[in-house]
Design a binder for these strands. Structure first.
Lengths: 124, 124
DNA sequence: ATATGTGCAAAGCATTTGCGGAGAT
DNA sequence: ATCTCCGCAAATGCTTTGCACATAT
C-alpha cells in the first residue's frame, strides 16, 4: 500500500511546477528548497513509483541521463544540440500504423526531434 | 590519424554481418569468435570511432543499455514489449518540420515504435 | 622509429539496495 | 503498534580511462 509522504508530494509538486523534463539532480536541487535533506535515493524511489502510477513519464535521449516529467497528454520532444535542453513538442504526425510490418502490433510511439533552439540557432 | 586494426575490422564486420542493433556484450561475444581475447574496452573505443565516422549508429531505448548497429539508410525502430528485441522499420512518415515551433531548426528525428512482434502477439 | 591502438584493471557515474531509524496509518 | 518510507552509505552495472606493451604506418 502506498503512503503519502511529504517527500513524495514535494517531488510530484516540483515536476508539476517545472513542467519540463528534469534530471534527477535538477529535481533533487529544486525539491530540496522544500525538503532540505531530501536524498537522491528517495528521488529515484518515488519517481519510480510515480511512473508506475502513470503520473510521471521518462524522457530518454541517447547519451543523456534519463529525465522525468509530469505526465501530460500525448506529445513529443525536441533536443537542442547547442544547449542540450529538452523542449516539449505539442504536435504529432498521427497514425504511424502504416509504418508497421505485417503482423506487428503497434501500442505506442515516441518521436524525438533534434536541432537547434532559437537561441542556439543564432550563435552558430 | 585512424589506423586499421584487426579489432576494428572485426567489430565493423560483426555489426555488418548481424545487421541488427547489438548490445556491447553481444558484440563482444560475437567478435571474440574472430579475436578471442578482444576486450570490452576496445569495443567501446572502436564503436565510438565508428560512430564518429558515420559508419555506426546508436540505438537508445529507455531502460535499455544502448545498442549499436551498422549505419543504414534512414530508418526507425520497433521495440517489442514481449521479447525486448529491436527490429528495424524501413519506413518514415517524412516531413516532420511542420511539428516544429517557430524559430526552432530541425536537423534530424528519431521514431521509436513499441508493441508486440508477431511471435509475442500470439502468446498474450 | 614513432605514434596510435590494445588489454587489463582501476576509476567514474548513474542508479539501486541494505539497514537502522523516522514517520504514516 | 505496525509496517512502509527515508537518509545514508555501500553496492551494482555500464562506460571510460591510465598505463605498459603491442602494432600499424
Amino acid at each position: 500500500m502506498e503512503r503519502s509522504t511529504k517527500q513524495r508530494a514535494a517531488i510530484e509538486y516540483t515536476l508539476k511546477k517545472m513542467g519540463r523534463p528534469l534530471l534527477p539532480q535538477e529535481l533533487l536541487t529544486e525539491a530540496q528548497k522544500t525538503i532540505p535533506n531530501l536524498s537522491l535515493a528517495t528521488i529515484y524511489r518515488n519517481v519510480k513509483g510515480l511512473i508506475s502510477d502513470g503520473l510521471v513519464d521518462v524522457v530518454s535521449l541517447p547519451g543523456e541521463t534519463d529525465r522525468y516529467e509530469i505526465h501530460k497528454h500525448h506529445h513529443h520532444h525536441f533536443h537542442c544540440h547547442g544547449c542540450h535542453q529538452v523542449t516539449d513538442i505539442d504536435a504529432c504526425p498521427g497514425d504511424l500504423g502504416k509504418l508497421m510490418p505485417e503482423g506487428y502490433q503497434l501500442e505506442k510511439h515516441e518521436i524525438t526531434l533534434y536541432g537547434r533552439c532559437p537561441a542556439c540557432a543564432k550563435s552558430v
